[in-house]
Computed example of a mutant assay.
Amino acid sequence: MAIGILTGSGTYALPGLSTSGSEPVLTEWGEAFVSHGTWGGVDVLHISRHGVGHPRLSNHVTHRANIAALKQLGAQGVLAVTVCGAVDPDADLGSVVCFDDLHFVSNRLPDGSLCTFFTEPGAKERGHWIYESPFSADLRAALLAGTEEAGVPVRDGGCYGHVDGPRFNTRAEIRGLAAAGVTAVSQTAGPETVLAGELELPYALLGFLTDYANGVKEEATPVETLVEMMAASTETFASILRAALPHAAAATPAPPGVVYRFGA
């Protein structure tokens, strides 16, 4: 079975992935564009959230189609990466975080609708996703093993904060997130986490810190630094994912928690 990989800003392709290219996959929730191939000896299903050239901003990402396509194509789990703004002032730019908690209070998709696959009353698959941690322990372990083998220092644990884009956040908004214990923020991984949970598709998330969010430091991170860090994330993520894939494929990962269903 394949491992799904979801990448964001700065990582639009997986270097060395043996594939015929990105192809449309039709789902109940629209089209997703998936590259299917072999990477590091592992069968991989890759989705670039934004697409080559970044045509899709965060408010254009088709989260339900992406997660549904990976499930439909038989992914046994998903390794996701995202560049982030640091909310923790003690975190270093260019460092990596393997998240173990989520702050996504709005629980909304970019179009404003609730972030769920359970949209129809009485549908047999409807249910409540109940969990202690939203991320797969098995896939977190694979990512941590990948960082060790790639020689990349990692923070084991942290709270990912999902924020709506495409704008960045104000100082007041970031203060609120800091008070809630958020470690770093970006604009895409909240819906992925929830939707993967509802489909019982194991999912884990790695972040690369490209800038300090507004108000975290006395001086704002220059845009040039953010762009430089984003470029640096590409090879860092590639080296970690290549090393993590065999661990993920060998793990037969279990989804976090359970989906309590009510039957037909």
Rank of each mutant, 00 (worst) to 15 (best):
T234Y: 13
L57N: 13
D43S: 15
E219R: 13
I174G: 00
E228S: 15
V185M: 01
M1H: 12
A231D: 15
G74A: 07
L93N: 08
A172N: 04
H63G: 02
V185R: 00
V97R: 01
R108M: 05
E235H: 11
P222G: 08
G207S: 13
A179C: 03
D43E: 15
R171T: 15
A178F: 01
G157F: 12
D138Y: 04
H103V: 05
G127F: 07
G37S: 06
G127S: 09
R242C: 01
D101M: 01
V25L: 06
M229F: 06
C159D: 00
V96R: 01
S95A: 14
P89C: 11
S22D: 10
L109H: 08
W29I: 01
T7Q: 09
A184G: 10
F237Q: 02
R167N: 13
R56W: 07
A248F: 02
A243W: 02
G257C: 07
D43L: 02
H46A: 08
K124P: 14
S233G: 13
A249E: 09
G215V: 12
A249I: 04
G122R: 14
S35W: 00
G158I: 05
L245F: 11
G151A: 12
P89A: 13
L26V: 09
K124L: 10
R155I: 11
A184H: 03
G8R: 02
L205C: 11
H50P: 01
E198C: 05
Y212L: 01
A180I: 00
I5Y: 09
G190E: 04
D88C: 06
I47F: 02
A264I: 04
K71G: 04
A243E: 09
T11W: 04
A69M: 03
P253F: 10
I5Q: 02
S239N: 14
G158T: 07
S95P: 04
Y131Q: 01
F208T: 02
P202S: 10
G122M: 12
P153S: 12
T62R: 15
V96S: 03
P55S: 14
P134N: 13
E173Q: 08
P24M: 10
V258I: 15
G112C: 06
L195N: 09
T221M: 03
L206N: 01
G165A: 10
V152R: 12
E23C: 04
G263L: 11
Q76C: 06
E132Q: 10
G158H: 05
L139Y: 08
G85S: 09
L79G: 02
A189W: 00
Y131C: 01
H128I: 15
E120S: 14
P121M: 13
H50I: 09
H36M: 09
G94N: 10
R140N: 15
C159L: 03
T7R: 06
G37T: 03
A232E: 15
L109A: 10
L73F: 11
E28T: 12
M1G: 10
G41C: 06
P89I: 12
A204C: 05
C115I: 10
Y260S: 13
F135S: 04
T236W: 05
D100N: 15
P15Q: 11
R140I: 06
